[in-house]
Protein backbone atom coordinates (compact mmCIF):
# COMPACT_ATOMS: atom_id res chain seq x y z
CA UNK A 1 0.00 0.00 0.00
CA UNK A 2 2.48 2.56 1.13
CA UNK A 3 4.88 1.49 -1.61
CA UNK A 4 2.28 2.46 -4.16
CA UNK A 5 1.16 5.54 -2.30
CA UNK A 6 4.52 7.17 -1.66
CA UNK A 7 5.57 7.89 -5.28
CA UNK A 8 2.11 9.32 -5.91
CA UNK A 9 2.47 11.58 -2.87
CA UNK A 10 5.91 12.72 -4.00
CA UNK A 11 4.63 13.51 -7.48
CA UNK A 12 1.58 15.32 -6.07
CA UNK A 13 3.79 17.36 -3.74
CA UNK A 14 6.13 18.26 -6.61
CA UNK A 15 3.20 19.32 -8.80
CA UNK A 16 1.70 21.45 -6.03
CA UNK A 17 5.10 23.01 -5.40
CA UNK A 18 5.93 23.79 -9.03
CA UNK A 19 2.47 24.79 -10.24
CA UNK A 20 1.04 26.20 -7.00
CA UNK A 21 3.43 27.35 -4.31
CA UNK A 22 6.28 28.71 -6.46
CA UNK A 23 4.04 30.79 -8.78
CA UNK A 24 2.12 32.05 -5.75
CA UNK A 25 5.33 33.18 -4.06
CA UNK A 26 6.66 34.65 -7.29
CA UNK A 27 3.34 36.43 -7.86
CA UNK A 28 3.37 37.83 -4.33
CA UNK A 29 6.93 39.13 -4.69
CA UNK A 30 6.27 40.15 -8.30
CA UNK A 31 9.80 40.76 -9.47
CA UNK A 32 10.66 39.85 -13.04
CA UNK A 33 14.20 38.90 -11.99
CA UNK A 34 12.86 36.12 -9.75
CA UNK A 35 10.78 34.80 -12.66
CA UNK A 36 13.98 34.70 -14.72
CA UNK A 37 15.75 32.69 -12.01
CA UNK A 38 12.80 30.28 -11.76
CA UNK A 39 12.75 29.79 -15.54
CA UNK A 40 16.52 29.27 -15.61
CA UNK A 41 16.27 26.69 -12.82
CA UNK A 42 13.53 24.80 -14.67
CA UNK A 43 15.49 24.88 -17.94
CA UNK A 44 18.55 23.47 -16.21
CA UNK A 45 16.39 20.84 -14.52
CA UNK A 46 15.38 19.76 -18.02
CA UNK A 47 19.00 19.84 -19.23
CA UNK A 48 20.21 17.80 -16.27
CA UNK A 49 17.38 15.32 -16.80
CA UNK A 50 18.27 14.92 -20.47
CA UNK A 51 21.91 14.38 -19.58
CA UNK A 52 20.85 11.94 -16.88
CA UNK A 53 19.47 9.67 -19.59
CA UNK A 54 22.81 9.47 -21.40
CA UNK A 55 25.35 9.82 -18.60
CA UNK A 56 23.46 8.47 -15.61
CA UNK A 57 21.39 5.68 -17.11
CA UNK A 58 23.34 4.65 -20.19
CA UNK A 59 26.71 5.45 -18.57
CA UNK A 60 28.17 7.47 -21.46
CA UNK A 61 30.23 10.32 -20.05
CA UNK A 62 29.16 13.33 -22.12
CA UNK A 63 31.28 16.47 -22.11
CA UNK A 64 29.52 18.40 -24.86
CA UNK A 65 25.91 18.54 -23.79
CA UNK A 66 25.71 22.33 -23.96
CA UNK A 67 26.25 22.08 -27.72
CA UNK A 68 22.84 20.44 -28.19
CA UNK A 69 21.30 23.01 -25.88
CA UNK A 70 22.91 25.64 -28.11
CA UNK A 71 21.67 24.06 -31.32
CA UNK A 72 18.13 24.08 -29.94
CA UNK A 73 18.43 27.69 -28.86
CA UNK A 74 19.92 28.84 -32.18
CA UNK A 75 17.35 26.92 -34.19
CA UNK A 76 14.54 28.50 -32.21
CA UNK A 77 16.06 31.98 -32.39
CA UNK A 78 16.78 31.82 -36.12
CA UNK A 79 13.38 30.36 -36.98
CA UNK A 80 11.69 33.02 -34.88
CA UNK A 81 13.69 35.99 -36.19
CA UNK A 82 14.39 34.99 -39.82
CA UNK A 83 11.37 32.83 -40.70
CA UNK A 84 8.92 34.49 -38.30
CA UNK A 85 7.67 31.21 -36.87
CA UNK A 86 5.89 31.23 -33.52
CA UNK A 87 6.83 29.32 -30.39
CA UNK A 88 4.42 26.48 -31.25
CA UNK A 89 6.59 25.69 -34.30
CA UNK A 90 10.05 26.56 -33.04
CA UNK A 91 9.79 24.37 -29.93
CA UNK A 92 9.39 20.99 -31.68
CA UNK A 93 11.62 21.99 -34.59
CA UNK A 94 14.51 22.95 -32.32
CA UNK A 95 14.13 19.68 -30.42
CA UNK A 96 14.17 17.74 -33.68
CA UNK A 97 17.17 19.59 -35.08
CA UNK A 98 19.15 18.95 -31.89
CA UNK A 99 18.13 15.28 -32.01
CA UNK A 100 19.20 15.12 -35.65
CA UNK A 101 22.63 16.55 -34.85
CA UNK A 102 22.86 14.18 -31.89
CA UNK A 103 22.31 11.21 -34.21
CA UNK A 104 24.94 12.57 -36.59
CA UNK A 105 27.36 12.90 -33.67
CA UNK A 106 26.45 9.51 -32.28
CA UNK A 107 26.84 7.47 -35.45
CA UNK A 108 30.64 7.65 -35.60
CA UNK A 109 31.39 8.01 -31.88
CA UNK A 110 29.20 5.32 -30.35
CA UNK A 111 31.76 2.58 -30.78
CA UNK A 112 34.14 4.43 -28.47
CA UNK A 113 34.07 3.74 -24.75
CA UNK A 114 34.64 5.71 -21.55
CA UNK A 115 37.16 8.54 -21.87
CA UNK A 116 37.49 8.23 -25.64
CA UNK A 117 33.79 8.86 -25.96
CA UNK A 118 34.01 11.68 -23.41
CA UNK A 119 36.79 13.38 -25.31
CA UNK A 120 35.12 12.86 -28.69
CA UNK A 121 31.98 14.59 -27.37
CA UNK A 122 34.18 17.34 -25.92
CA UNK A 123 35.77 17.84 -29.34
CA UNK A 124 32.44 17.87 -31.15
CA UNK A 125 30.95 20.22 -28.58
CA UNK A 126 33.86 22.60 -29.17
CA UNK A 127 33.38 22.34 -32.94
CA UNK A 128 29.72 23.29 -32.62
CA UNK A 129 30.67 26.14 -30.30
CA UNK A 130 33.24 27.39 -32.83
CA UNK A 131 30.60 27.33 -35.55
CA UNK A 132 28.21 29.34 -33.35
CA UNK A 133 30.98 31.81 -32.55
CA UNK A 134 32.51 32.24 -35.99
CA UNK A 135 29.79 31.63 -38.58
CA UNK A 136 28.90 35.29 -38.36
CA UNK A 137 26.54 35.60 -41.39
CA UNK A 138 24.10 33.15 -39.83
CA UNK A 139 24.65 33.13 -36.09
CA UNK A 140 25.70 36.80 -35.73
CA UNK A 141 28.85 35.54 -33.98
CA UNK A 142 29.74 36.80 -30.51
CA UNK A 143 27.05 39.49 -30.70
CA UNK A 144 24.35 36.90 -30.24
CA UNK A 145 20.75 37.06 -31.42
CA UNK A 146 17.95 39.15 -29.98
CA UNK A 147 14.76 37.07 -29.97
CA UNK A 148 11.91 39.54 -30.13
CA UNK A 149 9.01 37.15 -30.52
CA UNK A 150 7.98 35.92 -27.11
CA UNK A 151 5.99 32.88 -26.13
CA UNK A 152 3.04 32.73 -28.46
CA UNK A 153 1.10 29.49 -28.34
CA UNK A 154 -2.07 28.76 -30.37
CA UNK A 155 -2.61 32.45 -30.95
CA UNK A 156 -2.35 33.42 -27.29
CA UNK A 157 0.46 35.68 -26.18
CA UNK A 158 2.01 34.16 -23.07
CA UNK A 159 5.06 36.40 -22.83
CA UNK A 160 4.18 38.01 -19.51
CA UNK A 161 6.15 36.72 -16.52
CA UNK A 162 3.55 34.47 -14.92
CA UNK A 163 2.20 32.74 -18.07
CA UNK A 164 5.76 32.24 -19.34
CA UNK A 165 6.66 30.54 -16.07
CA UNK A 166 3.69 28.19 -16.44
CA UNK A 167 4.64 27.33 -20.04
CA UNK A 168 8.23 26.51 -19.03
CA UNK A 169 7.07 24.58 -15.96
CA UNK A 170 4.52 22.47 -17.84
CA UNK A 171 6.91 21.65 -20.69
CA UNK A 172 9.61 20.73 -18.17
CA UNK A 173 7.24 18.55 -16.15
CA UNK A 174 5.98 16.72 -19.25
CA UNK A 175 9.56 16.16 -20.41
CA UNK A 176 10.54 14.88 -16.96
CA UNK A 177 7.63 12.47 -17.07
CA UNK A 178 8.70 11.17 -20.49
CA UNK A 179 12.31 10.76 -19.33
CA UNK A 180 11.11 9.03 -16.17
CA UNK A 181 9.00 6.57 -18.16
CA UNK A 182 11.94 5.94 -20.49
CA UNK A 183 14.43 5.28 -17.73
CA UNK A 184 12.10 3.20 -15.55
CA UNK A 185 11.04 0.61 -18.07
CA UNK A 186 12.52 -2.40 -19.78
CA UNK A 187 14.09 0.09 -22.14
CA UNK A 188 15.73 1.90 -19.23
CA UNK A 189 16.96 -1.40 -17.85
CA UNK A 190 18.55 -2.18 -21.20
CA UNK A 191 20.37 1.17 -20.98
CA UNK A 192 21.48 0.33 -17.43
CA UNK A 193 22.85 -2.94 -18.74
CA UNK A 194 25.00 -0.90 -21.14
CA UNK A 195 26.26 1.16 -18.26
CA UNK A 196 27.20 -1.81 -16.12
CA UNK A 197 28.94 -3.80 -18.85
CA UNK A 198 28.32 -3.11 -22.48
CA UNK A 199 30.20 -6.14 -23.76
CA UNK A 200 28.05 -8.35 -21.58
CA UNK A 201 24.89 -6.53 -22.70
CA UNK A 202 25.96 -7.11 -26.28
CA UNK A 203 26.44 -10.79 -25.58
CA UNK A 204 22.96 -10.95 -24.06
CA UNK A 205 21.51 -9.83 -27.38
CA UNK A 206 21.02 -6.12 -26.83
CA UNK A 207 21.80 -3.98 -29.85
CA UNK A 208 24.17 -1.77 -27.88
CA UNK A 209 25.12 0.67 -30.60
CA UNK A 210 21.50 1.27 -31.55
CA UNK A 211 20.48 1.75 -27.90
CA UNK A 212 23.29 4.26 -27.41
CA UNK A 213 22.33 6.20 -30.51
CA UNK A 214 18.67 6.25 -29.48
CA UNK A 215 19.38 7.43 -25.96
CA UNK A 216 21.72 10.06 -27.36
CA UNK A 217 19.05 11.28 -29.77
CA UNK A 218 16.38 11.47 -27.05
CA UNK A 219 18.77 13.32 -24.79
CA UNK A 220 19.64 15.71 -27.61
CA UNK A 221 15.94 16.27 -28.30
CA UNK A 222 15.23 17.39 -24.73
CA UNK A 223 18.37 19.54 -24.64
CA UNK A 224 17.09 21.20 -27.81
CA UNK A 225 13.71 21.79 -26.16
CA UNK A 226 15.52 23.40 -23.24
CA UNK A 227 17.41 25.58 -25.70
CA UNK A 228 14.18 26.77 -27.33
CA UNK A 229 12.71 27.59 -23.91
CA UNK A 230 15.83 29.59 -23.04
CA UNK A 231 15.84 31.47 -26.37
CA UNK A 232 12.21 32.50 -25.98
CA UNK A 233 12.18 33.32 -22.26
CA UNK A 234 15.56 35.08 -22.03
CA UNK A 235 15.03 36.92 -25.33
CA UNK A 236 18.77 36.99 -26.09
CA UNK A 237 21.27 34.23 -26.80
CA UNK A 238 25.01 34.31 -27.44
CA UNK A 239 27.61 31.58 -27.94
CA UNK A 240 28.97 32.06 -24.40
CA UNK A 241 25.73 30.55 -23.06
CA UNK A 242 26.60 27.22 -24.70
CA UNK A 243 30.34 26.92 -24.13
CA UNK A 244 32.30 24.21 -22.37
CA UNK A 245 31.72 25.55 -18.80
CA UNK A 246 27.98 25.05 -19.31
CA UNK A 247 28.56 21.41 -20.27
CA UNK A 248 30.55 20.99 -17.09
CA UNK A 249 27.84 22.71 -15.06
CA UNK A 250 25.25 20.24 -16.36
CA UNK A 251 27.60 17.33 -15.72
CA UNK A 252 28.16 18.60 -12.18
CA UNK A 253 24.40 18.68 -11.61
CA UNK A 254 24.04 15.05 -12.65
CA UNK A 255 27.06 13.94 -10.63
CA UNK A 256 26.12 15.88 -7.49
CA UNK A 257 22.55 14.64 -7.59
CA UNK A 258 23.66 11.10 -8.17
CA UNK A 259 24.35 9.29 -11.41
CA UNK A 260 21.39 7.28 -12.60
CA UNK A 261 18.73 8.97 -10.50
CA UNK A 262 16.24 11.33 -12.10
CA UNK A 263 15.23 13.01 -8.81
CA UNK A 264 18.95 13.30 -8.13
CA UNK A 265 19.52 15.15 -11.41
CA UNK A 266 16.61 17.48 -10.60
CA UNK A 267 17.91 18.20 -7.10
CA UNK A 268 21.47 18.67 -8.40
CA UNK A 269 20.24 21.19 -10.96
CA UNK A 270 18.24 23.10 -8.36
CA UNK A 271 21.22 23.18 -5.97
CA UNK A 272 23.71 24.38 -8.55
CA UNK A 273 21.41 27.06 -9.99
CA UNK A 274 19.87 28.33 -6.76
CA UNK A 275 22.99 28.12 -4.55
CA UNK A 276 24.87 30.84 -6.46
CA UNK A 277 21.70 32.99 -6.33
CA UNK A 278 21.45 32.55 -2.59
CA UNK A 279 25.16 33.27 -2.26
CA UNK A 280 24.89 36.39 -4.34
CA UNK A 281 27.18 38.45 -2.06
CA UNK A 282 30.10 36.22 -3.09
CA UNK A 283 29.17 36.46 -6.79
CA UNK A 284 32.71 36.04 -8.12
CA UNK A 285 33.07 32.72 -6.41
CA UNK A 286 30.12 31.21 -8.24
CA UNK A 287 32.19 28.97 -10.49
CA UNK A 288 34.58 28.03 -7.70
CA UNK A 289 31.56 26.80 -5.79
CA UNK A 290 30.51 24.71 -8.79
CA UNK A 291 33.98 23.19 -8.99
CA UNK A 292 34.16 22.65 -5.25
CA UNK A 293 30.74 21.03 -5.08
CA UNK A 294 31.71 18.75 -7.97
CA UNK A 295 35.02 17.80 -6.37
CA UNK A 296 33.71 17.12 -2.89
CA UNK A 297 30.70 15.23 -4.11
CA UNK A 298 32.96 12.89 -6.08
CA UNK A 299 35.31 12.57 -3.12
CA UNK A 300 32.82 12.21 -0.27
CA UNK A 301 29.61 11.06 -1.92
CA UNK A 302 30.56 9.00 -4.94
CA UNK A 303 26.90 8.07 -5.22
CA UNK A 304 25.72 11.65 -5.20
CA UNK A 305 22.78 12.67 -3.10
CA UNK A 306 20.47 9.90 -4.26
CA UNK A 307 22.36 8.04 -6.94
CA UNK A 308 22.05 4.41 -7.81
CA UNK A 309 25.57 3.74 -9.02
CA UNK A 310 28.86 4.78 -7.50
CA UNK A 311 32.42 4.54 -8.57
CA UNK A 312 33.36 2.50 -5.53
CA UNK A 313 30.43 0.13 -5.88
CA UNK A 314 31.44 -0.72 -9.40
CA UNK A 315 34.94 -1.49 -8.15
CA UNK A 316 33.66 -3.67 -5.36
CA UNK A 317 31.43 -5.61 -7.69
CA UNK A 318 34.41 -6.34 -9.87
CA UNK A 319 36.32 -7.68 -6.90
CA UNK A 320 33.70 -10.34 -6.42
CA UNK A 321 32.67 -11.96 -3.17
CA UNK A 322 35.45 -10.68 -0.95
CA UNK A 323 33.71 -7.38 -0.40
CA UNK A 324 30.16 -8.61 -0.24
CA UNK A 325 29.97 -9.50 3.43
CA UNK A 326 30.49 -5.94 4.63
CA UNK A 327 26.87 -5.06 5.06
CA UNK A 328 26.48 -2.98 1.94
CA UNK A 329 24.32 -4.39 -0.76
CA UNK A 330 26.33 -5.30 -3.79
CA UNK A 331 24.08 -4.10 -6.54
CA UNK A 332 21.48 -1.44 -7.02
CA UNK A 333 17.92 -2.49 -7.42
CA UNK A 334 16.34 -1.28 -10.58
CA UNK A 335 13.20 -2.22 -12.35
CA UNK A 336 9.55 -1.34 -12.26
CA UNK A 337 8.97 0.99 -9.40
Amino acid sequence: MSDRLRPLLVVAAALVLVLGVVPAVLGALDRSYLYQVANLALIFVLLAASMHLVTGVAGLLQLGHAAFYGIGAYTAALLATEAGLTFGWTLPLSGLSAAFVAVLVALPTMRLVSIYFAVATLGIGQMIYLVMLNWVPVTKGPNGILVTSGLELFGYDLSASAPAYFVVAIITLVSLWVIHRLSHSYYGNALRALREDDQCADAMGLDTVRLKIESFAVSGFFAGIAGALWAHTAGYISPADFAFPQSILILAMVVVGGLGSLPGAVIGALILILLPEVLRPVGDFRNIIVGGVLFFSILLMPKGIIGEVSALDLVRRQLGGAWRGEGTKAGPEVGWR
Binding site: L61, A118, A252, I298, A311
Partner: peptide, 14 residues
Protein backbone atom coordinates in the same frame (compact mmCIF):
# COMPACT_ATOMS: atom_id res chain seq x y z
CA UNK B 1 38.20 -0.02 -13.38
CA UNK B 2 36.48 2.31 -15.75
CA UNK B 3 34.56 3.91 -12.91
CA UNK B 4 37.75 4.86 -11.08
CA UNK B 5 39.13 6.39 -14.25
CA UNK B 6 36.02 8.45 -14.71
CA UNK B 7 36.06 9.53 -11.08
CA UNK B 8 39.59 10.91 -11.44
CA UNK B 9 38.65 12.43 -14.77
CA UNK B 10 35.90 14.39 -13.06
CA UNK B 11 37.96 15.25 -9.99
CA UNK B 12 40.76 16.65 -12.15
CA UNK B 13 38.13 18.57 -14.11
CA UNK B 14 36.78 19.98 -10.84
Amino acid sequence: SRAMREATLMSSLA
